[in-house]
Amino acid sequence: MPFALPIALPTQTASTAKTCKRIAGKLGGRLAAGLALAFAAALPAAVHAQEPWPARAVTIVVPFAPGGNTDMIARLLAERLGRTFGKPFVVDNRGGAGGLIAAEYVARAPADGYVLFMSTMTQIVTAPMTNKIRYDPVRDFVPIVNVGGNPFILAASTRHNFKTVADLVRYGKENPGKLNVGHAGNGGLTQLSALLFLSRAGVQATMVPYRGGAPALADVLAGQIDLYSASVSEVMPYAGTGKLSLLAVSSDKRLAQLPSLPTIAESYPGHQVDTWNGLVGPSKMPPEIVDKIGAEAKKIIAEPEFRAHLESAGIIPLGETREAFAQRIKQDQKKWKPVIEAAGIQPE
């Protein structure tokens, strides 16, 4: 006949033997013994599920190869979060398809707070407008903290001896299609920022996709391609070295770190492009874990030492948590949709 176990599942670790004995005493017989053994087998999983987060290492997935802007920010934050929470925060680089491979991986990951995603505006805002993706950037992710934002710098190979934006544009117009422009994947801001500039300048160029910013920059340095619209932190180490020609920055004002570098807007008024790097997670993550990570990350980003590290790389510290970050995403979606439509980019 139907029956119910006369005890409730314990909420804290207890002796398995005593638990089995109590069940057997109340029910008796082989049936009770069998049920008690089944209960004992399930007990470790139940107890494990009640362990406070984080009980083990946390992975931060980076959508590009090691060495780029996003990777650097992720490693800085991972090291500090690990110290804060007392468990390792490990960076996992999963490059390819402009970061879409990594984004889909995290979107399908368990929503338990142990797999996070150091996203860029590409995967969350622009890629859905330029690629046929297998995830929903709003439905499948929850914003945690927006770490920092940065504009882009037109970085050119030294082989053509470009000194100014005018030099680059002149060459591009005299040699239609011969200007090779690298980017970190279709639909990404390194591609879109370059396309927007080229469109305004009236230059036809050949776009060359890479698995991340680091390999694209490496080929510019080697003279394999002519131009890369780089994040500021990627090219700051080369300023003044003669290994790379920094032509202009996409912000509305000149950078404090590079005051002699003109803005693109000085040649093409109204031109302004920037992006961000933010930590997100699978959408069904427990809100208390989202808020816990966001609150601690915001404290870290506010620390003078951490801010100075970001700013020295040309990154503007933001520290926007859940609601503010979500609002920025909505605003960026509205901003970039008409730009992408005007450029004639279709999902592929």
Rank of each mutant, 00 (worst) to 15 (best):
Met72Cys: 02
Asp332Arg: 00
Asn131Glu: 14
Phe141Ala: 06
Leu255Ile: 06
Thr206His: 12
Asp274Ile: 03
Val203Lys: 01
Thr158Pro: 00
Gly113Cys: 11
Ala265Gln: 14
His160Asn: 13
Gly202Glu: 03
Ala256Asn: 11
Thr59Ala: 12
Asp252Ile: 09
Arg30Thr: 09
Ser260Lys: 08
Ala103Tyr: 11
Arg307Cys: 04
Phe197Met: 02
Ile345Glu: 08
Arg170Ser: 12
Trp276Leu: 13
Val235Trp: 04
Val290Glu: 00
Gly177Thr: 01
Val62Arg: 02
Ser260Tyr: 04
Thr263Pro: 04
Ile316Pro: 03
Ser199Arg: 13
Lys253Trp: 08
Ile144Met: 13
Phe117Gly: 01
Gln333Pro: 01
Arg200Thr: 09
Ala65Ser: 12
Val339Asn: 01
Arg328Glu: 06
Ala8Phe: 13
Ile133Asp: 00
Pro237Asp: 04
Pro6Asp: 08
Tyr228Gly: 00
Leu77Ser: 06
Ala166Tyr: 09
Leu116Thr: 05
Leu192Ala: 08
Arg254Met: 02
Ile301Phe: 05
Pro63Leu: 03
Glu341Gln: 09
Asp332Ile: 01
Phe197Gly: 06
Met121Ser: 11
Thr321Ala: 05
Pro137His: 11
Asn93Ser: 06
Glu348Phe: 15
Lys298Trp: 07
Lys334Pro: 00
Ile315Phe: 06
Asp140Gln: 05
Gly34Phe: 14
Gly86Pro: 06
Ser250Pro: 02
Ala38Pro: 03
Glu296Cys: 03
Met285Ile: 08
Asn175Ala: 07
Val165Ala: 06
Ala107Ser: 08
Asn161His: 15
Met285Ala: 04
Phe197Trp: 05
Ala326Trp: 01
Ser245Trp: 11
Val249Tyr: 12
Pro317Tyr: 10
Glu303Ile: 08
Leu179Ala: 03
Gly212Leu: 00
Arg200His: 13
Gly98Tyr: 03
Phe162Asn: 01
Arg200Val: 11
Ala302Gly: 10
Cys20Thr: 00
Thr126Asn: 09
Ile293Asn: 03
Tyr238Gln: 13
Leu310Val: 02
Pro54His: 13
Arg254Tyr: 10
Pro151Gln: 05
Ala78Ser: 13
Ala32Ser: 14
Asp332Ser: 05
Leu37Arg: 15
Val235Gly: 02
Ala57Thr: 11
Glu174Phe: 10
Leu247Lys: 14
Asn146Glu: 10
Thr122Ser: 15
Ala295Cys: 03
Leu168Gln: 05
Ala216Ser: 10
Asn131Arg: 15
Arg322Met: 08
Ser119Tyr: 10
Thr122Asn: 09
Arg322Lys: 15
Val203Gln: 00
Thr84Val: 10
Met285Val: 02
Pro286Ala: 13
Ala14Asp: 01
Asn161Ser: 15
Ile289Trp: 03
Ala216Arg: 04
Leu37Cys: 08
Thr158Tyr: 14
Tyr210Met: 02
Gln224Lys: 15
Lys132Cys: 07
Ser229Asp: 01
Thr164Ser: 15
Arg94Asn: 07
Pro347Arg: 13
Gln123Gly: 06
Ile264Glu: 01
Ala45Glu: 12
Gln333Gly: 11
Gly242Met: 10
Lys292Ala: 15
Ala97Gly: 02
Ala107Asn: 03
Leu258Val: 01
Glu174Arg: 06
Met1Gly: 14
